[in-house]
């Protein structure tokens, strides 16, 4: 857990209070991590784990334990209508990319199988996890650049977890993120560079990652406050194992087709349920 301890938060807020004691009546409260932070402060958008919860410690959420997760939600995403024809991508600007895609390359933004299953849909629990706090995994989520494409194209991670972007290609890339609620960055990564670690401190679905040197290269990152997320496989299927019994809102987003309508489910201990999301062009 990376959230400050209760003690830290309390000491901090007393510090802040002392600090603005002389500020006069007109001062708005300063932004800060403590309870009662003013407008513009960070606590209104508490990042991972539902924030410090310092204002009501008694009613606070419990630490999640995997043993509570006995229910399984699975399902699939599909695209209505005809299967779109693949779009050829011209990689001529960088012969190294052409070389690695000798069979020709197609655009990976829309991948639909013969029965309409839609790949690379980010599925996540958007409501219903407030009763728990979750430990942010120490290990980073890996986004690799191979053959002048991102692998995988869509990844999910928890708020505060690191995204490790590595370059396995014999050419240079630049890793340009386009967040709206997190820090933006654009750093180049020549062949053989060490990986870049990017942190997203607020939940945001989906953040685009692009390479400006190779305009076809795009990835998406879904950042959520809980560990209940998945990316649909080639046949459009997904599984969220280890849910606790309860009522949840489940959302699904695709980089081209946007959001599908949300679904609310109620699931009991040990149960298995299935839902489906339909996207349209």
């Amino acid at each position: 857990m990376r959230t400050p301890s209760l003690a830290q938060t309390l000491i901090l807020s007393s510090l802040v209070l002392t600090a603005c004691g002389g500020g006069g009546e007109s001062s708005a409260p300063p932004p800060g991590g403590g309870p009662g932070a003013g407008p513009g402060g960070p606590s209104t958008e508490a990042p991972a784990n539902g924030g410090s919860g310092a204002s009501s410690p008694a009613a606070g959420p419990k630490a999640w334990s995997d043993s509570a997760g006995t229910a399984t939600l699975s399902g699939s995403a599909s695209l209505a209508g005809d299967v779109p024809a693949p779009i050829q991508v011209a990689m001529d600007s960088d012969p190294k990319c052409v070389e690695m895609n000798s069979g020709g390359a197609t655009d990976g933004s829309v991948l639909v199988d013969a029965s309409g299953g839609l790949q690379n849909v980010f599925v996540y629990v958007s409501k219903g996890t407030d009763a728990w706090t979750f430990t942010v995994p120490e290990e980073p989520v890996i986004l690799d650049q191979t053959g002048c494409n991102y692998t995988p194209r869509v990844v999910g991670m928890m708020t505060g977890q690191a995204l490790r972007v590595q370059n396995s290609d014999p050419t240079v890339h630049n890793v340009h993120t386009y967040p709206k609620k997190n820090r933006a960055s654009n750093v180049s990564q020549p062949a053989g560079s060490k990986p870049l670690e990017i942190e997203m401190k607020r939940s945001e679905v989906l953040v685009a990652v692009k390479c400006d040197m190779h305009s076809w290269m795009q990835a998406r990152v879904g950042i959520v406050d809980n560990p209940f997320f998945a990316v649909t496989a080639a046949d459009g299927s997904f599984t969220l194992p280890k849910l606790a019994a309860g009522e949840y809102t489940v959302s699904a987003v695709h980089e081209v087709f946007g959001k599908a309508s949300k679904q609310t489910i109620t699931i009991g201990d040990g149960e298995a349920q299935s839902i489906s999301f339909e996207f349209s062009k």
Partner: peptide, 21 residues
């Protein structure tokens, strides 16, 4: 202050600091 991390206090209140994560 703040669990031994330490922080500055401004008696005039024009500067402030807060800890997040």
């Amino acid at each position: 202050a703040a669990g031994g991390v330490g922080g500055w206090v401004d008696s005039r209140g024009e500067y402030s600091l807060s800890e997040v994560e």
